[in-house]
Each structure stands twice: as C-alpha cells, then as structure tokens.
C-alpha cells in the first residue's frame, strides 16, 4: 500500500485500475454544489483515472444538479484529454427521478430508463452503449453521493441485487456510516470519504488537483483546532487546581 493512503481509498483505486481497457463503467453524480468542494475533486480524479485506462464512462445523476456537476467535471478533465469523444468515450445520460426505483429499473433495462442522452441522442445511436443493455453489463459503478438518493441505494440495488461492483465517494460527515459496507461481502469496493480521501486518490493517479491543494489549508485548520483543544484543557485544569487550593 502506498504511504499515507488509506485502505479504503486503495480499494477504490484498485477496482478501477484492474478493469480492462474498453470496458464501460458508470459514475453517478448524486450531489449538488453545496458539497462540491469535497466531492468534485473525486469526480475529476475518477474520470481522469478511467480515461487514462481507456475505459468508457457513462454519467448519470440521481440529483437534478448532478447533471451540471458532471458537465463541469468532464469539461475540466477533457482539457487534458482532448481526443476523447462524446458518445464514443463518454456520455452524459442526465438526471432521473426515483432513486432506488430508478436503479432497479436500470438493472432491467437501461434504454427504457434513458431513451436519450442529455443532448437528445437516442440510446441506440450512442456508439459506446452498443451491447450495454442493463447494469450487469457495466464493469463497475461509482456513486459520488452527498445524501439520499445516493451511494446507499446503489449498494442496495446494483451491488446486492445485481452483483455489479460498486465503489463511491461521499462527504466526510457520511463516511463513518458507509464504512461498514466495505466488508468481507464487498458490498462496497472501497470508499472515498471527504477531501482527505480525494487528495489520496489524486496522489495515486499522480495528479496535483484541487483536493491536494486544499489539504494544506485543511491540515493547518486541524492543527489550530488541536491547539485550541489543548489550550482549553490546560485552562480548565488550571481553574480546577486553583479552586482546589
């Protein structure tokens, strides 16, 4: 394991790293701008990783503003990968309401749930989706999630019902709630929890991205908090001692 990289991040990285070139994968953008500081770097890193390995990415969203988040992330990564073509290397299928029920329907038939992509191209005319009829045809799924519907629904339906490997990223607040799913049953193949995990992922793919840059500020803030906790405790101790005297 690489120094300073948690096992959870490593597992998520390994899942993508060990997927063959040409495989079709899905990234679900289940968040909105309120949590983009933490989750957008994960999206960019996973897109770049998949592009680097020539995997083809399907983008979906269970949150309405996830569509814009996906567009922003792809546009940023495409600056370094100008040869990637919409429809051939990646496609944005857009937002669908329904959460768990929608994922369940995707497990039966993707074209029924997404008759067209975000730009209006019919499903049957999207080159990279030829042969992709249901969730089981995907190599892996990643849900970048900041609430419900999101990662949990993908685990419950895509992983536990259809057996598709699921990984994902979430805000640091939700991370402890998802860790139990990274278990012997492989309900989750690793997890990116918060900005720290995003920066770890960036270091694994050799990218100095937004998460890595923000971690400096994060570390300083944590040191300050520790310092204040120590000062508070010393002060409380002194007051107690004075009272005892």
């Amino acid at each position: 394991m690489e120094d300073g990289v948690s096992g959870y991040t490593m597992m998520a990285y390994d899942l993508i790293e060990n997927t063959a070139a040409g495989e079709v994968v899905l990234i679900s953008f289940d968040y909105d701008p309120s949590t983009m500081t933490e989750i957008q770097p994960m999206a960019e890193a996973q897109i770049e990783h998949a592009f680097k390995l020539n995997q083809k990415i399907v983008a979906t969203a269970l949150w309405p503003m996830g569509v814009q988040m996906a567009e922003q992330a792809f546009n940023k990564v495409l600056l370094d990968y100008p040869d990637k073509v919409d429809g051939t290397d990646y496609v944005n299928l857009g937002y669908k309401v329904g959460g768990m029920v929608t994922i369940q329907a995707m497990g039966r038939s993707l074209p029924d749930v997404y008759p067209t992509d975000q730009g209006g191209t019919p499903y049957a005319e999207i080159p990279m989706l030829q042969g992709i009829r249901r969730l089981k045809d995907l190599a892996w799924i990643s849900s970048l999630s900041s609430g419900t519907p999101g990662l949990k629904e993908w685990v419950m339906v895509a992983r536990d019902s259809y057996g598709v490997p699921v990984t994902g990223g979430c805000t640091a607040i939700s991370a402890p709630g998802f860790f139990p799913y990274v278990n012997e049953q492989r309900q989750l193949h690793g997890l990116l929890g918060g900005l720290k995990a995003a920066s770890e992922y960036e270091s694994l793919i050799g990218r100095i991205g937004p998460a890595t840059i923000k971690m400096d500020a994060q570390s300083v803030a944590h040191m300050l908090i520790l310092l204040f906790i120590a000062i508070g405790n010393i002060k409380a101790h002194l007051i107690r001692r004075r009272k005892a005297q």
């Binding site: 500081t37 607040i173 991370a175 500020a217 994060q218």
Partner: peptide
C-alpha cells in the same frame, strides 16, 4: 470511539466547506 471518529469526520467536512467558500 466510533462517536469520536464520526465527530472528527464532521469537523473535517465543515472545514472543507469553509475552505471552499474562502477559496
């Protein structure tokens, strides 16, 4: 211990949001 870890993650998330806004 699990509550402590959860609180730690919560602090990290809030600081991340603050960093985002300051940025």
């Amino acid at each position: 211990v699990s509550f402590g870890a959860t609180f730690g993650y919560t602090v990290m998330a809030r600081i991340s949001l603050l960093i985002g806004r300051l940025e």
